[in-house]
């Protein structure tokens, strides 16, 4: 049973401004599990505690209560190798391209594995593989990361994390500011990573449509607590509750509800475009 649980968050509590009269409980008894190879969506309005939670996953923040188990070991134990953990749980922050700093793309991507103390051959092999993995061409290798387009820079930033060969990849709003095609390309690439390498993915997103389309399971955060932890279909059936906390269901779900009220016999549990299309065609008895 334990092998099936890559990471366990166990009753996490975290407070900002401790010991003042402005104490904010950012995480309030948060427990959940990340399974190997799982694609997990994390949603919640601004300030709901998502980013604080994400920083616990690789022990950047130390909880005030509760702990995290990685492969069964308590990562906040004194003797635990937290530096190694940061290679296993790769974190891609919002607008990661703002953190690029090296002279060339290749050096940038080598930085992480280099820091892990690997020998130079291994470092370089990993860098080449990671750059190819994110769909950048070899011509980019010697370019300055600052000469690349916004979408390419973001890929370099993701490659730098992938080069550490993480088992869990956490991405905090990786598509913010990208054009629609760029969003699709990036999400397909992430999907592909999960399928070919078996990496678990945690996607923090403000796009309900993207989450509905891609993830296996959704965790909804509100005021530092987990409100829902279930499949997208079950979570998005709570459209009213989600709206009350600043979120929503995907647009197609609302369309299906409208059609149902208008007397069309559609299945209102649809959350993706394909599901909506199929149930509408069925309700119209359309044979195409």
């Amino acid at each position: 049973m334990m092998e099936n649980m890559k990471l366990i968050a166990d009753h996490l509590v975290y407070e900002y401004n401790k010991g003042t009269n402005q104490t904010v409980r950012a995480l309030d008894d948060v427990s959940f599990v990340i399974h190997p190879g799982e694609f997990l969506g994390l949603i919640g309005h601004t300030g709901s505690g998502k980013s604080t939670l994400v920083q616990h996953l690789n022990a950047l923040l130390r909880p005030d209560g509760g702990t995290i188990y990685y492969d069964g070991a308590d990562v906040f134990e004194k003797s635990y190798d937290r530096k190694a953990l940061r290679g296993k749980v790769g974190l891609v922050f919002q607008y990661p391209e703002h953190q690029l700093f090296e002279e060339t793309v290749f050096k940038e991507v080598c930085f992480g594995p280099n820091n892990m103390g690997l020998d130079i051959k291994e470092v370089e092999q990993r860098a080449y593989a990671a750059i190819a993995r994110v769909g950048l061409t070899e011509e980019c290798l010697d370019q300055s990361p600052f000469d690349l387009s916004g979408g390419q820079k973001r890929r370099v930033a993701i490659a730098s994390v992938l080069a550490m060969q993480p088992e869990i990849l956490v991405l905090d709003e990786p598509t913010a500011g990208l054009d629609p095609k760029g969003r699709d390309e990036l999400l397909s690439m992430i999907m592909d990573l999960r399928e070919t390498e078996g990496i678990s993915i945690v996607l923090v997103s403000h796009s309900m449509e993207d989450v509905a389309e891609y993830v296996d399971r959704i965790i909804v955060m509100d005021k530092g607590k987990i409100l829902y932890d279930d499949t997208p279909k079950v979570v998005f059936a709570h459209a009213k509750e989600l709206e009350a906390i600043g979120l929503s269901a995907p647009q197609v779900t609302y369309i299906l509800q409208d059609l149902k009220s208008a007397g069309l016999d559609v299945d209102t549990t649809g959350i993706t475009l394909a599901e909506a299309r199929n149930t509408i065609l069925e309700a119209l008895h359309w044979k195409g």
């Binding site: 054009d179 369309i255 475009l273 299309r277 509408i280």
Partner: peptide, 23 residues
Amino acid sequence: LRELRLDVPQVTELAYELKRAGV
């Protein structure tokens, strides 16, 4: 629009897909 790396609102896309299916 798609050739220009853009998209349409999801409602429009759904209508487009239904139209392609003959509706």
